[in-house]
């Protein structure tokens, strides 16, 4: 479980995140949704320690991450897996070496055990027998899946995904969504996904936080979101002309 308490962040005189508190539940896919520029990525970066909040706390299963020193934060980060928007695979390493990288750094596994774990992770994301390919040889969807394999290689307790479906076709996006949901439930991890893709919201939105202009505006799940009366959220959910036709009359 990850808790954020009264998080604030200001860049210059612009308030990007304002007094957000929320609990991300274990074993569920927790979504942070909102328009571009609403503060989603800033919030996520504060949760993983890439940006420091001006005020507030982030707690990983009760451990106050924000008040830890650099070494202690690094220890918590070893329990984190992250899927970046662009994949962030290491260009100079093959797929196999990318997935093996966290195992090389932090485990005492034998080479055979590492190979077995790498193959297990690549099988999970349906990239078996692609071990020797380099990131430049992969398609967008394959890169995302490979990055997901690397993120789960070290058996993380917490998984963060920054817009996992951006730039993907709807069918591939569904594959990524299904993978994230399956991994979350199978390994009982706390997953936080940033997205503004409504397909994802409906597919995997078990617990949703909607941010509007840097503030927590609504929370609920993918069933409740369709029946919300929150005007800003309704405008976000039913943004296109096509979806507006499906909007329930109130």
């Amino acid at each position: 479980m990850i808790e954020i308490k009264n998080i604030h962040k200001t860049f210059g005189d612009r308030k990007v995140v304002e007094d957000i508190s929320f609990t991300f539940q274990t074993g569920k896919t927790n979504l942070i949704i909102g328009e571009s520029g609403s503060g989603k990525t800033t919030l996520l970066k504060m949760m993983v320690g890439l940006i420091f909040p001006d005020e507030g706390n982030v707690l990983y299963d009760g451990r106050d991450f924000t008040s830890m020193d650099e070494t202690a934060q690094r220890d918590v980060r070893k329990e984190i897996g992250m899927l970046f928007q662009g994949g962030a695979l290491f260009d100079s390493l093959t797929l196999e070496d990318n997935v093996k990288f966290p195992l090389d750094m932090f485990t005492r596994m034998s080479e055979a055990e590492k190979k077995e774990r790498v193959n297990f992770c690549l099988n999970k994301v349906q990239l078996e027998n692609r071990n020797k390919l380099y990131p430049a040889e992969l398609s967008g969807g394959m890169k995302k899946r490979a990055a997901l394999a690397r993120a789960i290689a070290n058996s993380p307790q917490y998984l963060f995904c920054d817009e996992p479906n951006s730039g993907l076709d709807p069918k591939t996006a569904l594959v990524i969504d299904a993978l994230i949901k399956d991994l979350t439930q199978e390994f009982n991890i706390t997953t936080v996904v940033i997205t503004h893709d409504m397909n994802s919201v409906m597919e995997i939105g078990q617990h949703i936080l909607y941010i509007y202009k840097g503030k927590k505006w609504w929370d609920g799940n993918n069933t409740q979101i369709l029946n919300t009366t929150n005007k800003e959220l309704l405008d976000f959910v039913y943004a296109s002309e096509f979806l507006k036709q499906l909007r329930p009359k109130s």
Binding site: V48, G49, L50, R74, D75, V76, R77, K78, I80, M82, F84, Q85, G86, A88, L89, F90, D91, F101, P102, M105, F106, N154, F160
Partner: peptide
């Protein structure tokens, strides 16, 4: 710029 350094940091690597 391709977030590979952020990826290292998130893994807990200096």
């Amino acid at each position: 710029i391709t977030e590979q350094i952020d990826a290292l940091e998130i893994m807990g690597i200096n």
